[in-house]
Design a protein around this nucleic acid. Structure first.
Length: 325
DNA sequence: TAAATTTGACCTAT
DNA sequence: ATAGGTCAAATTTA
């Protein structure tokens, strides 16, 4: 029920376009670098089809030099962040929002839900407080599945100004181990598939299945991912949010808008869908972390070895102009 | 049969 | 009043 003057949709669309452009530029840069390292000094030619990037980009006059491509990538991020910060997804920038109370109780966000609920006896339901993003981490990626934890879906909701329903997950070990980690997954686009995942709380569970700490295979340097770290206020509770490194669980995700009756059946094939997703998009992931503590950033960065040298973009305080200068 | 998912209802914040 | 987040019964899947 959004109105025409609601900026959110336009903002989101513009942000996605910028991200796609940056993805495309990064991919070209990757190819250029591999070309140079292989000794060939041929100018970069128009690469193979696809890249999940429509024709609206810069295919007509592709930048030829690495500097141009780097600039393109950075400008893409810069533009995206400006869009997001200026209106659309305020979650990215609202990390400093004060933690919401739970029924007047000064409880930390990660704990409030649980504590409130546990204080409710019998049949009446507990506290359904609306979350603030304090202590949350936002990840935007073309891969929503592999975050190293096991999740159980507990809800799905259509969100205003979003074409796709938001999916709600909690840690599988909430019951048996009292793990309070939750996450919301919002699909942003189909082509290319982009997901915004917001993590709340941190995992206190001990998952028996161990997962690799590396987001992408280090042995394949062509598979680059970009991690943007947005340092926000101190949020000591999120320290363990991503560090457990248990095995990835494939996350079910719904189809847009109309949920098919055999939705569950589709989800059961998530293993296949995830792998195919990787296959379709070998291009760089884009990952954004928000409201993370310094240690969190360190964990995330150190756990991602796929981005080396000149392409190590760590945004802290975000001033791309400096980089471009 | 246990575990996971779906989905409408419930509840709170705005 | 409405949107967002969660619950929990019903349903589906392994």
């Amino acid at each position: 029920m959004y109105t025409a003057n609601d900026p959110t949709r336009e903002t989101l669309s513009a942000a996605i376009q910028h991200l796609q452009r940056g993805q495309y530029a990064a991919k070209r840069l990757r190819d250029l670098m591999s070309t140079l390292s292989s000794g060939s000094m041929k100018p970069l030619k128009e690469e193979e089809d696809g890249g999940g990037f429509g024709d609206g980009g810069r295919r007509s006059s592709p930048p030829a030099t690495a500097a141009d491509l780097v600039r393109d990538v950075i400008q893409s991020f810069n533009s995206t962040l400006m869009f997001l910060n200026s209106g659309g997804s305020d979650e990215v920038s609202q990390a400093d929002a004060p933690p919401a109370d739970c029924r007047k109780g000064a409880v930390k966000p990660e704990e409030s839900e649980e504590s409130c609920k546990s204080s409710v006896t019998g049949g009446s339901r507990g506290c359904y407080k609306r979350r603030k993003s304090s202590g949350s981490r936002i990840v935007v990626s073309n891969n929503h599945a592999d975050d190293g934890h096991q999740w159980r879906k507990y809800g799905q909701k259509s969100i205003l100004n979003n074409n796709f329903p938001r999916n709600y997950f909690r840690c599988t070990h909430k019951i048996d181990q009292g793990c309070r980690a939750t996450k919301h997954v919002q699909k942003l686009s189909i082509e290319p598939p982009m997901y915004q995942t917001t993590y709340y709380g941190h995992h206190t569970c001990r998952n028996p299945v161990k997962a690799p700490q590396i987001i992408l295979d280090e042995s394949n340097p062509s598979d680059s991912s970009i991690i943007l770290c947005f340092r926000a206020e101190k949020s000591p509770d999120t320290t363990a949010a991503s560090g457990n490194g248990t095995h990835a669980t494939n996350i079910p995700f719904s189809q847009p808008q109309v949920t098919p009756p055999n939705y569950a059946k589709l989800e059961r094939t998530k293993e296949d869908s995830v792998s195919s997703e990787y296959g379709c998009f070998p291009t760089p992931n884009l990952t954004m972390f928000s409201s993370m503590t310094g240690s969190d950033q360190g964990e995330e960065l150190s756990s991602d070895h796929s981005f080396h040298g000149d392409m190590d973009f760590v945004i802290d305080g975000i001033d791309f102009g400096d980089v471009l200068a």
